[in-house]
Design a protein around this nucleic acid. Sequence first.
DNA 1: CAGTTAAGTTCAGAAAATGAACAAAGATGC
DNA 2: GCATCTTTGTTCATTTTCTGAACTTAACTG
Lengths: 377, 377
Amino acid sequence: MLTSSQQQLLRVISQSGPSSRTVLAASMGLSKAAMSGIARDLISLGVLRETETIYGQGRPSILLDLHPEGAFFVGISLLEDPAPLVLSDFNGNIVARQTMPLSRDPDVIAEMIADTLPKLLAEQESADGKLSGLGVALSGFVDEKQASCVKSTLLGWQDVPLAGIIRQKTGIDTFIENDAKAVAVSEKLFGSARDVRNFSVVSFGNGIGCAHFVGGKLYRGNHGGAGEIAHCTIEPNGSPCRCGKRGCLDTVASLKAIKEMAKAEGLACQSLNDLETEASLGNAVAIRILHRAGSALGLAIAHLIQFNDPGLILITHVEGRFDGLFGTVMRQAAEANVLPRYAGQTPIRTQRVDTDVWARGAASIAAHNFLIGPNPN
Amino acid sequence: MLTSSQQQLLRVISQSGPSSRTVLAASMGLSKAAMSGIARDLISLGVLRETETIYGQGRPSILLDLHPEGAFFVGISLLEDPAPLVLSDFNGNIVARQTMPLSRDPDVIAEMIADTLPKLLAEQESADGKLSGLGVALSGFVDEKQASCVKSTLLGWQDVPLAGIIRQKTGIDTFIENDAKAVAVSEKLFGSARDVRNFSVVSFGNGIGCAHFVGGKLYRGNHGGAGEIAHCTIEPNGSPCRCGKRGCLDTVASLKAIKEMAKAEGLACQSLNDLETEASLGNAVAIRILHRAGSALGLAIAHLIQFNDPGLILITHVEGRFDGLFGTVMRQAAEANVLPRYAGQTPIRTQRVDTDVWARGAASIAAHNFLIGPNPN
DNA sequence: CAGTTAAGTTCAGAAAATGAACAAAGATGC
DNA sequence: GCATCTTTGTTCATTTTCTGAACTTAACTG
């Protein structure tokens, strides 16, 4: 196990990127002498390495960065069938990939993982003995310890201690997390939100997920429900939602909702792109649907900005485009519904991601726990 | 200055209340031996004291608590004229009070404070030499260092480095803060949110303010704007707001808005209480106004719950009542617009406070900085 | 009243961080 | 081209902080 100073150093590097010993010492409030020793230990452990040399006035500084092969993590997504398993290095690169059939039985899942792990590790020799954690992403609510699934409609679960079951079968430190929160962590650790302390990730797909980073840490909420924007009321007295309320964001702006509205209106559109094309050709129905969905998502994002004042809103999407009518209306609505003084102050970035986002996010949950530990006070 | 362990101990006690050395050692991850020494030092400094003795099996434990006279803080509210100055002890009790005329000139304010301070301190002899900080609460945005007012419409300020000016004139460590955020800090340190890590305070008055505590820390947002729920769009295409948008919560649910709506409808109501009385007598207009306001506030609170999943919503109000139609509708709307699964899971507590809330909150900002320091990583 | 239990203290030694001096490595100026 | 300057990073003795184990204290238990 690493000392607290060593963990802190890893955390600082993972947050601010490669840095010199002197800079790191200053940002951790330690002396250069102390930093020298800590860095030496972590380098000899193979966790850190020296990368670039920066020339300036005086002696050049040598940047320290996480050694990509310092630790490896497994990430599994329970959102698809077959379920992907990926092996990620310390820089978040996927170095191996397998799949396994999805099951709803926790014991079967653990068994499958234990069976598939050797195949995954065989793909990357250098990972031998350096597997430092396993993460699972799923749709649903997860408890604070990231050990137990409190509730998952998709999997039909209630209070399933999945992490413990997998840990027992595989012998590897295991943590589970909600899908959107896992994506947020991977964006923070390895993605485009590395240097932002406060941000929200909105994952746009058939459902709409969201997760917040506050003060450089994932904020899970008191019941693990922080970020559940899909069921905020956006159209009072709107259409009924499967959750029991009416006018939820999910009923208007999710990919599934958009497709269903198109179908209900008799449009032969299979995808958001089709609908965008129709709209650009002047189809009034397509325009109306996209307008309605874009306004709703934009309003929800405006609320997010007003309530939490994040430094970045990152919208990740597997399907669809955000450069058409839908995206434009969304941005306009977001701008129009925040304090005019703040309009344009919060960057809204959209990012197309591949279908391994969830598995990669799951792996980053394991990395996060390795880097930051369970409870950093 | 205190060592970081000493600060941490004070922070833990201020968060979890009086505790024995053994319990404190465990919760800080230190040995009993280390705790023994740290506690001894702080007791001899007069900052901690032994209070109750708890008898159980074995040697009784002695609870340690902040010494009420261990440190004193001054709090000043710039929200009223005359502006109140209060002296608070380490337990958040107000032990002295003065007022001074309000000014919009920072130099004059600092001058007035410097003049009034001796009078305030004279009221409490034991505070002599133990004044450990000064806090100022104001309406507007404050920078991250709690030193400079970025913007205050009420005071007509833009980038006013008030803390520095006051510090120079008085020689006392000074911090400024937004009014709602100051109240949140005082509820966390001394009030009813002591043991809640995640909560939001909604301050209801002529304006509507809000502040979040996340992970036991005040969350200020990336531009200091976290919690600005007053200008979230609650009635799309609603009445124009002074901020430039339409349908802001502030235009429907603030005390000022309610009174103005009543006046515009020709009701002779001076206060929320009058309006409640009218409503209870069956006045349809009063009922409609209260319904609209309560629904709006409830919807905003529902959004707050959906977005951030806090452990507590604390509504503080100087005027008005929350046990009438307005409060009932507010609660119903809040419940009806969160995921049914979560309805009722988040306590919504209302709390009537006196007009010294702001000054008390300001003092707690100083206490917070004394206890926790400027930047606890 | 002896035995048990748990809180808090003491003290030697270990661990971690500091400060100051110094070595290293390149930029700068004449 | 060479001495000088500037800044990074290391070394090491010293100081600070924490730990572990033994011990003292002060109850409760039967």
